[in-house]
C-alpha cells in the first residue's frame, strides 16, 4: 500500500519572512533569498469572539496556517507539534510555585495538546475525527506518517497541521527554537483539479544525510524548529519537481518522500 501516491492539494506555511504568499512562493522556488520578517499579529477570524479571546499565540499559529486551506466537512485533521503550548506550561508552573497555587481555568483547558483541534472543530464546525500527536524533534515526520496512513485506510481527505512556537524565556535554555514555524498540507487519495503534486513515503535506515533546503537561505528555518524539517518537501511541491527527499525520523531512521509531478 505504501507505494501508492497520495495527492497534495493545498500547502500553507507560516514563519517569519514566509507570511506573504507570493513572496514565499518565490523563496520556495529559489528565486528569492529568505530574510527574517517579524510575524504580524494573528487573529483567529473564524472563531466566535468569546472563543477567540481565549486563544493563545500557539493556538492562533495553528489556526492561522489552515485559514487559506480549502477544508470540507469530510476532512479529518492531524495536528503535529513537538512542544504544544510551553507558554501555558510556564504560566501554570509559575502559579503552582506560589503558596495559593491558583491555576486559571482557561489556561488549564487550553493546556491540552489538542486545544487547537478543539478550536478548529468549533470555528469550522468540523465533527470529523482529529488527532494531536508529538514525536519530539521528529514530529513533522510522525505527522506525515499518520496523515498518509489515514488517507490510505480511511479514504477521506486529511489536513496535516504541523506547528511549534518559540519557547518562553524561563524555559528557553532547556528547549530553544529560533522561530515559530507552521506548515499545513491537504492530502487526498485521488487526484483533483487543484492537485499540486503527489507523494509516496517509506521509512528506511539512516544511510545518508537528510535533504537540506534547495534554497540555502532557508536552512536556518529548517534547522531552527522541528517543523522546519518539512520545508524541503514544501519546496519540492512548489517547484513541481520530481524529487526524493530524506527527512530525519526517530530511531536513526529517515523518512523517504518521493515527490512526483501530476
Amino acid at each position: 500500500m505504501l507505494d501508492k501516491n497520495i495527492y497534495i492539494n493545498s500547502i500553507a506555511v507560516i514563519a517569519p519572512g514566509l507570511e506573504d504568499i507570493e513572496k514565499s512562493e518565490e523563496i520556495f522556488k529559489g528565486n528569492l533569498e529568505w530574510s527574517p520578517v517579524e510575524l504580524s499579529r494573528m487573529v483567529p477570524s473564524a472563531l466566535p469572539a468569546n472563543e477567540a479571546r481565549r486563544t493563545t499565540t500557539v493556538i492562533r499559529l495553528a489556526l492561522k496556517v489552515v485559514e487559506s486551506v480549502k477544508k470540507s466537512s469530510n476532512t479529518s485533521v492531524v495536528f503535529a507539534s513537538s512542544e504544544g503550548d510551553l507558554d501555558i506550561t510556564d504560566k501554570i508552573c509559575k502559579a503552582l510555585a506560589t503558596k495559593e497555587k491558583m491555576v486559571s481555568p482557561t489556561l488549564f483547558h487550553n493546556s491540552v495538546h489538542n486545544a487547537p483541534a478543539g478550536y478548529l472543530s468549533i470555528s469550522d464546525n468540523m465533527k470529523t475525527p482529529s488527532i494531536s500527536l508529538s514525536a519530539g524533534d521528529n514530529t513533522f515526520s510522525a505527522g506525515l506518517i499518520e496523515s498518509v496512513a489515514q488517507v490510505l485506510v480511511e479514504s477521506n481527505d486529511v489536513l496535516l497541521v504541523a506547528y511549534d512556537n518559540v519557547t518562553p524565556e524561563d524555559l528557553d535554555e532547556f528547549r530553544h527554537f529560533d522561530h515559530p514555524v507552521a506548515i499545513a498540507l491537504l492530502l487526498s487519495k485521488t487526484k483533483r483539479v487543484d492537485t499540486i503534486g503527489s507523494i509516496s513515503i517509506t521509512v528506511q535506515d539512516q544511510l545518508s544525510e537528510a535533504t537540506p533546503c534547495f534554497n540555502h537561505s532557508l536552512e536556518v528555518v529548517r534547522n531552527g524548529n522541528p517543523i522546519g524539517l518539512g520545508l524541503p518537501l514544501v519546496e519540492s511541491l512548489f517547484k513541481r519537481k520530481v524529487n526524493k527527499i530524506l527527512i530525519p525520523y526517530l530511531n536513526q531512521k529517515r523518512l523517504l518522500v518521493k515527490v512526483n509531478n501530476v
Partner: peptide
Amino acid sequence: GLSGVSMTISTA
C-alpha cells in the same frame, strides 16, 4: 529495544 514507527498521541 524497538525502532519501528512510533508516535505519542495526546488528545486529553
